[in-house]
């Protein structure tokens, strides 16, 4: 981590309410190029909301979010263009149900980046191969296992050449035997230098891959630490009891 460089994502004093519910409270967070920031915390603590504000799928009430030093555009074409630089992988995969896996991966490049179709297809096949689902390219999402769908969804994001990737509990909807295959792909991505923000309950993954761990509770960042320090010796009582509750399972 090189603290002298400008962060690629910067949240400054971000607040967000859903009605009366204060879901993000004065969030400050910098993410630097090449970092893997893992966000953990109990259900309802605001992890997904935090993740979704970064590409403005959720708006914020106050504070500011900078991407490469510039505030997020409010709407319209500029916002769409910004989103194309930020990959997002969802818990529920969200592949386009009416398209083949290959078309899922080429849609963004062809429609948004105006990549020629042939080139987009070649690259899509390369990416599908990289995540291990090339043999499924002509099937539709419903014909794939959850793990295969999630890997295809990662390929779909990668096809946009994102500068950052956001993962919101990418393995939470998967059967246990498929979690590993998705985490393996993510581990490789991290090793290749992708900047990632990952919301997850996979503590082993966090320990191995994270550059930093962010612990959230009730809308606040309660603790921010290197993974080893966090897992062996959390500073706050809340983090300690959260970790205990997880290890209790």
């Amino acid at each position: 981590m090189n603290e002298t460089r400008e962060p690629i994502i910067s949240l400054r004093h971000v607040d967000k309410h859903f009605g009366a519910l204060h879901v993000l409270k004065a969030i400050n967070l910098d993410v630097y190029k090449g970092e893997v920031v893992v966000v953990i915390g109990p259900s309802g603590s605001g992890k997904s909301t935090l993740c979704r504000t970064i590409n403005r799928l959720e708006t914020i009430d106050s504070g500011e979010i900078l991407f490469e030093g510039k505030p997020l555009p409010l709407e319209g074409k500029e916002l769409a263009a910004l989103r194309s630089h930020i990959g997002m992988v969802f818990q529920s995969f969200n592949l386009f149900a009416h398209m083949s896996i290959l078309d899922n991966v080429t849609l963004g490049p062809v429609d948004v980046l105006h990549t020629p179709k042939k080139e987009a297809r070649e690259e899509a096949r390369r990416l599908l191969d990289r995540v291990g689902v090339l043999s499924q390219e002509s099937k539709v999402p419903a014909q794939l296992s959850g793990g295969q769908q999630q890997r295809a969804a990662i390929a779909r994001s990668l096809a946009m050449h994102p500068k950052v990737m956001l993962f919101d509990e990418p393995t939470s909807a998967l059967d246990p035997e498929m979690i590993g295959e998705v985490l393996d792909v993510m581990t490789t991505l991290a090793a290749d230098g992708m900047t990632m923000v990952v919301v997850t309950h996979e503590m082993n993954f966090a320990r191995r891959v994270a550059s930093r761990v962010i612990f959230m509770d009730s809308g606040s960042i309660v603790e921010e630490a290197a993974p080893d320090a966090f897992f062996t010796n959390p500073r706050t009582e809340r983090a300690r009891s959260f970790l205990q509750s997880i290890h209790g399972h």
């Binding site: 590409n55 799928l57 074409k77 769409a80 263009a81 910004l82 989103r83 194309s84 630089h85 930020i86 990959g87 997002m88 969802f90 529920s92 995969f93 969200n94 592949l95 386009f96 149900a97 009416h98 849609l107 963004g108 429609d111 948004v112 969804a153 779909r156 994001s157 946009m160």
Partner: peptide, 28 residues
């Protein structure tokens, strides 16, 4: 019948409203 997540996925790819409508919503 379209899962809202697919619309969010399209927006996350940087698709505009009209692209999302044309390529994801209306075809389905």
């Amino acid at each position: 019948t379209i899962a809202p997540g697919q619309i969010e996925a399209a927006r996350s790819l940087g698709m505009t409203f009209s692209q999302t409508i044309r390529r994801v919503v209306i075809p389905q």
